[in-house]
């Protein structure tokens, strides 16, 4: 029981990341009909927003404090971050500590702009081209974005720690009437799960309950008719591209404390997210979310020692295996719509 609970929890944070990236991919595919291989790079850029902000906040200047002497008798140097000098020591320290959540505020405008520029500058010209061309040009773009990030931040992973409050772990056992210290789960991963659940809910609410969302949904169902009604659907789809980029970016921002960002992290997530999208069904938003969590949890179950001893190596291949089985038995994925990406 406790082992099962632990694995479900372990699967949640990875599943949340898959679900968010897959949600963005599906949004772009459903609205613009573009297969975006640069989506992983957007995730990566998001998590580098965290790194940038925590680096910016820890910029500091040195002063010589004559009252304190180091062991050689020289006056010791004190480094004070600029934020602490400006906002006072306590508030400044808190800002530095909370740099990752604060990076959300930075990431939203950055990602919206990146998404807008990407769509207007490049992807716009590829609507009428074959899917293979779209895949290739966005793949090239992903390489370029990666290399730019690598140029500025280097090839090694850079850590961006979570705020002090969330660094511990929560003991889940007592909530479910189990022994203490059996089911221990880091706070930050829990935060990540609720954060991504919130974003998913926000995206769905936006599409469901706003006029803008209604128009977008109508455009996803029948672009031509919406256009005939005198609505500039392209403009709204561009905004949706920006939103999808922001969703991927936010997934990246909050993931930084879980996995230290490096310039290649996007590609690793991209491949899995594509599998997730296809398993969920191309063009289906609930499918993408469902498949994301499903595959995340399955992966963590497969990495249990009990399972691994029965089928060795299953943890390495489970996602792909599930994808193959689902694609062969349910050709449109779990919740795919008819006629999307078919003949």
């Amino acid at each position: 029981m406790d082992a099962i609970l632990l694995q479900i929890l372990n699967g949640l944070d990875k599943g949340s990341a898959y679900a968010l990236i897959a949600l963005g991919l599906t949004l772009i595919f459903g609205t613009l009909g573009v297969v975006n291989f640069a989506h992983g790079a957007l995730f990566m850029i998001g998590s580098f927003c965290s790194v940038t902000l925590s680096k910016l906040f820890s910029l500091s200047f040195e002063t010589v404090d004559p009252t304190k002497l180091d062991f050689l008798g020289n006056p010791s140097k004190v480094t004070t971050p600029y934020v602490q000098a400006w906002f006072g020591p306590e508030l400044g320290a808190a800002i530095i500590d909370w740099s990752v959540p604060l990076a959300i505020l930075l990431a939203i405008p950055v990602m919206l702009i990146v998404g807008y520029v990407m769509e207007r500058g490049l992807i716009k010209h590829f609507y009428k081209r074959a899917h293979a061309d779209q895949i290739l040009v966005t793949f090239g773009l992903a390489i370029v974005l990666q290399e730019i990030v690598k140029y500025f931040f280097g090839a090694n992973p850079i850590s961006a720690p979570a705020p002090e409050v969330f660094r511990g772990s929560l003991d889940f056992g007592p909530f479910f009437g189990l022994e203490a210290n059996k089911v221990i789960y880091p706070y930050w991963r829990l935060v990540y799960f609720f954060f991504s659940a919130g974003i998913i809910a926000a995206v769905f609410a936006f599409l469901r309950f706003t006029t803008f969302g209604m128009v977008v949904r109508a455009g996803m169902a029948d672009r031509e008719t919406v256009g005939l009604l005198g609505i500039d659907i392209d403009k709204r789809f561009t905004v949706m591209f920006g939103i999808a980029a922001a969703v991927a970016g936010l997934a990246g921002v909050m993931y930084a404390p879980i996995l230290s960002p490096n310039y290649q992290m996007g590609m690793d997530f991209l491949v899995l997210s594509f599998v997730v999208v296809v398993v969920g069904g191309m063009g289906s938003l609930p499918g993408a979310v469902l498949a994301g969590f499903l595959l995340g949890i399955l992966q963590s179950f497969a990495s249990m020692n009990e399972v691994k001893s029965v089928i060795p190596g299953i943890d390495q291949i489970i996602i792909y295996l599930v994808a193959i089985i689902i694609l062969l038995t349910r050709p449109r994925g779990l919740m795919g719509r008819k006629g999307v990406m078919e003949e």
Partner: peptide, 18 residues
């Protein structure tokens, strides 16, 4: 279509991981 691409990708990644 893309389903074929993902299936081949899945098989190749499985072989790589194994």
């Amino acid at each position: 279509g893309i389903y074929f691409s993902i299936l081949t990708l899945a098989f190749a990644q499985m072989s790589f991981n194994m």
